[in-house]
Design a protein around this nucleic acid. Structure first.
Length: 270
DNA sequence: TATCAGGCCCTAG
DNA sequence: CTAGGGCCTGAT
């Protein structure tokens, strides 16, 4: 399956930090594991190629990559006088907000706190290999699905320290218990507003405002969520002393947040 | 050797 | 309610 490459850049998406299971192969193609699925994606000659059937593309990956959304409207909304944001959008014009699986995002962002990207990836890889199901992709590639809540629910709270989670182990195990025993119903979040969903997520042990916002943005597609981490906070303090114009970007501030986040990590490496 | 990374929990005041 | 110490671990 291939599509025209319009406001889509798989490298930017992989580097925007919303997914921890996208990796670049030696041949430049990207491997993505999402929940229990696997796909290989690459770009060539103005097209993006998705190594899957048309049916699987329509059913899953099209939505996963948010391909029905026109991102130009978000980019065009940026105040031309705002030089910082204009530069950010220019650099990250191929970013998209993925539609990722809820449970996977809860655990991933529990792990992400006070942590660096390299270790986050390793942690997720560790728990997947140990507690996830081994799968074989249609092209023969072996991979591990993200572990289900049930697979983690019976562990001792510190058991995931063996997977390198450190003090976050108990956050993940307790949350897995709550989900597996029905105390916390994941499906119940989909029908909620951003504010309501965030309020529910904050009840989970280990989930604070920042992590809840990331889950809302990357799993529930609440694109008005605007996660504020240390990087974003510094940008707001440095470039928006008079206050960030949230009003102008009302309803899709999360998309703008991603442009900023990507820009902060990559503006010096181009 | 100290600091800090895409925070959060918990306790004091 | 707000401030601040403590927390696993590894990279710099």
């Amino acid at each position: 399956m291939k599509i025209l490459k319009e406001n889509f850049d798989i490298e930017q998406i992989a580097e925007s930090g919303q997914c921890f299971r996208m990796s670049k192969r030696d041949d430049g193609k990207y491997e993505i594991i999402a929940s229990d699925k696997y796909i290989c994606v690459w770009e060539d000659g103005g097209y993006v190629y998705f190594d899957c059937s048309d049916e699987e593309f329509e059913e899953y990956w099209k939505h996963y990559f948010d391909l029905d959304t026109d991102y130009r409207k978000y980019m065009d909304s940026v105040d031309a006088k705002d030089e910082y944001l204009s530069a950010a959008v220019r650099l990250g014009s191929g970013i998209r907000i993925l539609n990722q699986e809820l449970w996977e995002m809860i655990v991933s962002f529990l792990i992400s706190q006070q942590n660096n990207i390299t270790r986050i990836r390793r942690c997720i890889s560790n728990i997947s290999e140990r507690y996830g199901e081994e799968k074989t992709a249609s092209d023969g590639t072996k991979y591990y699905a993200f572990p289900k809540a049930e697979a983690l629910a019976d562990l001792a709270e510190d058991a995931l320290m063996e997977c390198n989670l450190g003090y976050r182990s108990k956050y993940v195990v307790r949350t897995a218990k709550a989900v597996a025993n029905g105390e916390f119903v994941l499906d119940g979040l989909y029908g909620l507003s951003y504010e309501e969903a965030k309020e529910q997520l904050l009840k989970l042990y280990g989930v604070g405002k920042k992590v809840a916002d990331c889950i809302c943005l990357f799993a529930l597609h609440k694109i008005d969520a605007f996660p504020i981490d240390t990087h974003i906070r510094q940008v707001l303090e440095e470039h928006y002393k008079e206050g960030f114009p949230f009003g102008r970007y009302k309803g899709f501030a999360g998309v703008i947040q991603q442009y900023i986040f990507y820009y902060e990590l990559h503006k010096n490496t181009v």
